[in-house]
Design a protein around this nucleic acid. Structure first.
Lengths: 116, 116
DNA sequence: GACGTACTACGATGGGTATCGTACGAGGCG
DNA sequence: CGCCTCGTACGATACCCATCGTAGTACGTC
């Protein structure tokens, strides 16, 4: 939309604007990597509140925004809830295998330590 | 000199100390990603001075240290030169496919823009 | 020993960022 | 409408980090 720019309009980068460095940076934070893993496990739309992190709500909002602005997740309001989902299609098209490899690596690391 | 902890002794993390988040963070910097790509292309030991970056020597040293301390590269002195090589064996063992996938993603992104 | 090269160490600086607390807006439900 | 929940915005804070310049150390060579 050209006009209103409601606070409910969420800015997402277009597919060709997604940068590898930015994606890697987004994934390099423990909290965000955890979010991505849970989104991958859920495999669908998940509300922010569904994912519990050991930080305050403010910080959680911040991490979700970083993930969205880096192009890793897609967000949309649905009533009061905000639904989140991985941008698998875009990421797979841009960087084939990257998401799955990172997820596998995270699983492997979690299995190695008890941090599953 | 057995013990002295000479400044020529370089600290590397053991394989099981390498953390995925740290590796991703190391790779999320454009300069460092560039270094890793060049090391992968060279496929062998390369001196620091062989890789030219648009930053000062100090900054280059900093990036090489981050890469070493994250477990991405191995460094060793060889005369006055400092040789660098990817820790392919360790990375592939810990996170199968990760390095190659990231390298492919970087190539793809470079090809898309003229930044090869 | 003297010199040049390769890289480092240290301090400074400016910008990013993870975290929090509090105050606020939007939507559903009684 | 009143209220609760979900999530945001904003300011503050403390920390991390990419960058630089300068001074210094280790090594090879003459």
């Amino acid at each position: 939309m050209t006009t209103a720019t409601s606070p409910r309009d969420l800015a997402h980068p277009a597919r060709d604007q997604i940068r590898l460095e930015t994606v890697l940076h987004a994934l390099s934070d423990p909290m965000r990597l955890r979010v991505v893993r849970e989104l991958a496990a859920a495999d669908g739309e998940v509300a922010c509140s569904y994912i519990e992190l050991p930080v305050t709500k403010s910080t959680t909002t911040h991490h979700f925004r970083v993930l969205r602005e880096s192009g890793v997740i897609r967000q949309a309001y649905r009533g009061t809830a905000k639904m989140n989902g991985l941008r698998r299609d875009d990421l797979d098209a841009l960087f084939p295998g990257l998401l799955d490899t990172v997820l596998s690596a995270a699983d492997a690391q979690a299995a190695r330590q008890g941090t599953a």
